[in-house]
Nucleic acid binder design. Sequence first.
DNA 1: ATGGATATAGGCAGTTCTGCCTAGGCAACC
DNA 2: GGTTGCCTAGGCAGAACTGCCTATATCCAT
Lengths: 217, 217
Amino acid sequence: MKEQSIAQQDPVAGLTVFLVDDDEAIRNSLARALQKRDYRVETFPSAADFLLRYDGETPGCLILDYGMPGMNGLELQAWLARAGHDLPIIFITGHGGVPESVQAIKAGALDFLEKPFRQSVLIERIETAFALVAEHHAARAGTERLRAKFDRLTSREMEIVSHMVSNPSETSSKEVGARLGISPRTVDHHRARILEKLQIRSVAELISMAQHFLAKG
Amino acid sequence: MKEQSIAQQDPVAGLTVFLVDDDEAIRNSLARALQKRDYRVETFPSAADFLLRYDGETPGCLILDYGMPGMNGLELQAWLARAGHDLPIIFITGHGGVPESVQAIKAGALDFLEKPFRQSVLIERIETAFALVAEHHAARAGTERLRAKFDRLTSREMEIVSHMVSNPSETSSKEVGARLGISPRTVDHHRARILEKLQIRSVAELISMAQHFLAKG
DNA sequence: ATGGATATAGGCAGTTCTGCCTAGGCAACC
DNA sequence: GGTTGCCTAGGCAGAACTGCCTATATCCAT
């Protein structure tokens, strides 16, 4: 059990390096070099090809050639960002200049390496990327657990939660009831259901949970 | 009153452009161009000179030559970051390359412009920087107001707040008292003082405030 | 149409909170 | 030596919360 969870967290074993470059020689040599170090590698000759074949789920990082015919690296980066994907991107480039690198980093790329680069640097960035993915995954998992609980609330219950979070000075049944035009007794009932569904014991904990949830989700 | 506050928020009127470049010709021409557009400009021939003369307070942005003899731009950036200063930095460079620009942006620089650049681009980045400063200033002011309130709490009161925030499921006087080894009645007394000093009316609001405060401050 | 989920609302008893009062012990400061 | 501030703690009354019960109305799905 413990060993299995370690194995799943091992970046080399669990995550994939997606390599997008229009230069077949580079694809092959880089892929071989990474596979020799036990990385799982998938290669793509173009951004369009990556978009076609990437399932949007598999965790990993993207090694992306900046200057490719058709959709270039920056466009693919923007596309992935809009789609809400969470693949750290390491740009590699033959002819990219300062403005391109600046734009890429500003848009969230992890690094921007000029060819030729030392493999040790790339490996290092891949490890950084995988650590990032692990972090995001953990954070995401926490948020998802929260969302699952809040999803079990009815709309009326959510309304009451919203009111309490945005008006924490008016959390008594009397005040909430007045605001929603219902009896304080009914608010009592809803509050009890809310605490029960969220598996908590106090309004203080509700505020705490809801703020964490709203801040992220 | 209203006009004064607008005048203070006006970036051009209220904020300073700090220009650090070892090339006197560039210093003079850029400074003149910016002053013509009503920017307040201060020039420095070296990073060391800037550190000597900058008071650490005046809000504004830093236009920083990357490649200077002595302390270079990147080092000055790191120095300011360590000192906790909040000056957005726009790098300008004659010979900087991709790795330098990447490192600068990663370290938080707003942009990295290669000489020669169009003045319109620089102006645009200055405006972005000033907008950032205004944002940070507003956020800082809010946090400071919070800190001022929390600073009025005694250590025992803070202890109770801390416990309630980190254990929001145990916020009743009975539970807090048991945890601190004091009478529930005394916790009542402290709680009342806390709410009074923070000018709030409920524990829910306390949790909300304290979380915002702890998240930032 | 019958059952299930939801929203509404009340009764009642026990618990907790809140605001008001008092009060002793202790440390710091003038 | 007195004042001030803090921590401690209790009494008391009214308000609010909590958990248990019942109950009606509505809407939706089988």
